[in-house]
Amino acid sequence: MTKRSYINGLPLVLLLSGMSTPAFAGSEDVVVENAWSRASIGVNRPGAAYMTVRNTGEDAVTLTGLATPLAMMPEIHESKTNSDGVSSMAPAGEITIEPGQSVALEPGGLHAMLMKLQEPMTEGENFPLTLTFSDGGKVTVEVPILGIAARGPEG
């Protein structure tokens, strides 16, 4: 369902073809659902946000990055637990979503890791998170901040 691909040249091609209106190849069909995050203690610890990214279009889309005023270094990371029960976490790289498919960012797997928080994440507030795609398109969602002990989008 998720695989890496590198279509970095695509935005350039679109630019050179002289289109005046932004014509994104797929990302306008991306729907983000059930976004949520956990409150932080202060700003020293990284935060995490979760959501489902659905590709309702007919072209594959590749999620290449994140941006938010809340954190200077937002990045998609993946937690993994090996057969010995040891958990580790690493940047997930680019994520391609095939047409009609979705990618779940959920506890213990993929997550938006919010490093270098600019302010504490306070329960009850929201923050905007922008997902950037390889076709140059951007999708911004408002992410509600739930309690530290929240287990899902319903708290």
Binding site: I41, R45, P46, G47, A48, S79, M89, I148, A149, R151
Partner: peptide, 17 residues
């Protein structure tokens, strides 16, 4: 560890549940 953004709060909230 408390600087763990994903696995640890998830474990702690699972256990709380």
């Amino acid at each position: 560890f408390t600087y763990c953004p994903d696995v640890c709060p998830t474990t702690l909230s699972d256990i709380s549940g």
